[in-house]
């Protein structure tokens, strides 16, 4: 077990930011912390790293209690902050070298690691650039390189893809998976469910500082009643149509808004064919029609009654 958090409580006055949060992260995992803004993801990370004092609970990393002066533990942790934290006075190379130098004393080894990190994040052409000259995506890559250059055993990435273009985002996610393949355990926080779904082996969904569900993405999806979501771009749907669809077998909810008919069906038999038959029989005009499996957003919606991005 790489990280063990037990009953962590953090209060800001009357606001409970973390409410008896418990989690475990196993070696070799990419552990995702998913939740909307303000759900306590960053607070949890800061408490785990002892950057914030917490009111109650225990944090262990590598089987040892984590504390502000646990320098031996810190040596094997890489952190990528939510905000880009680099020195504007140093070049790309200088920044990576500085942060790597906080962990690695040997000059030659450090040089090798810095070079590797530069290649890893694809900043080879920008080594002499100052951060102010870099685009948002390149800055994020630099931010990551500063956190991972020393080859840590545990990498904590706090929303590393915020405000990043799709191309850079893709590269960052590929990079995280590669780091994991190389042996690093990763804790990844995000409010983008697609990212978490794509890279994380195990996911914890947070809301208002509480863990509302934990498991693999399949385990999480299995927790909810919905099995399939059918979306139909249709025109002239009446209330009578909606009532009749609700009466179809295995249908659990029907919504019609902005010419989009969204039908959710429960576990068991697929309902796509049934819905299609109904549309044809009632001569309803329709454009696109497609079926989707449940997403983590649906999991979040069903458990909390609100969208992840609310």
């Amino acid at each position: 077990m790489i990280v063990r958090v037990k009953n962590l409580v953090k209060r800001y006055g009357d606001l409970v930011a973390l409410d008896h949060l418990s989690l475990t992260v196993n070696e070799g995992e990419i552990f995702g912390l998913l939740g909307p803004n303000g759900s306590g993801k960053t607070t949890a990370i800061n408490c785990i790293l002892s950057l914030l004092k917490y009111d109650k609970g225990e944090v262990e990393i590598f089987g040892r209690p984590m504390a502000p002066d646990a320098y031996d533990i810190k040596r094997d942790i890489g952190i990528v902050m939510q905000n880009v934290a680099v020195y504007n006075e140093l070049t790309v190379y200088g920044n990576i070298d500085y942060f790597c130098g906080l962990y690695i004393k040997d000059k030659n080894e450090r040089k090798r690691l810095v070079e590797e990190a530069i290649d890893f994040v694809g900043l080879r052409d920008f080594t002499k650039f100052y951060p102010k000259k870099l685009s948002g995506g390149l800055l994020r890559r630099l931010n990551i390189a500063c956190g991972i250059a020393h080859k840590p055993k545990l990498i904590i990435l706090d929303e590393p893809t915020v405000a990043v273009d799709p191309q850079s985002r893709n590269r960052i996610l590929e990079g995280i998976m590669e780091l994991n393949r190389q042996g690093a355990t990763v804790i990844y926080t995000s409010h983008y469910m697609e990212e978490v779904e794509r890279i994380c082996t195990r996911i914890m969904i947070l809301d208002k500082g509480r863990a509302i569900a934990t498991g693999t993405k399949d385990e999480l999806k299995a927790m909810i009643t919905m099995n399939e979501k059918i979306t139909v771009e249709s025109f002239g749907i009446t209330d009578e149509h909606i009532s009749e669809i609700r009466k179809l077998p295995n249908i659990i909810s029907v919504e019609y808004k902005d010419n989009l008919l969204v039908i959710k069906s429960g576990k068991g038999k697929n309902s796509f064919e049934t819905v299609l038959d109904f549309i044809r029989k009632n001569e309803i005009r329709f454009g696109k029609i497609y079926s989707e499996l449940p997403t983590l957003n649906d999991v979040f919606l069903e458990i909390t009654g609100k969208e992840l991005r609310d």
């Binding site: 800061n46 790293l49 502000p68 002066d69 031996d72 952190i79 905000n83 880009v84 934290a85 906080l102």
Partner: peptide
């Protein structure tokens, strides 16, 4: 001013270098 930057300070605090 540079050393008072919250994010940079936190990043330095995460390192094994004693405060």
């Amino acid at each position: 001013f540079v050393f008072n930057d919250r994010d940079l300070r936190m990043r330095n605090e995460c390192s094994p270098v004693k405060s």
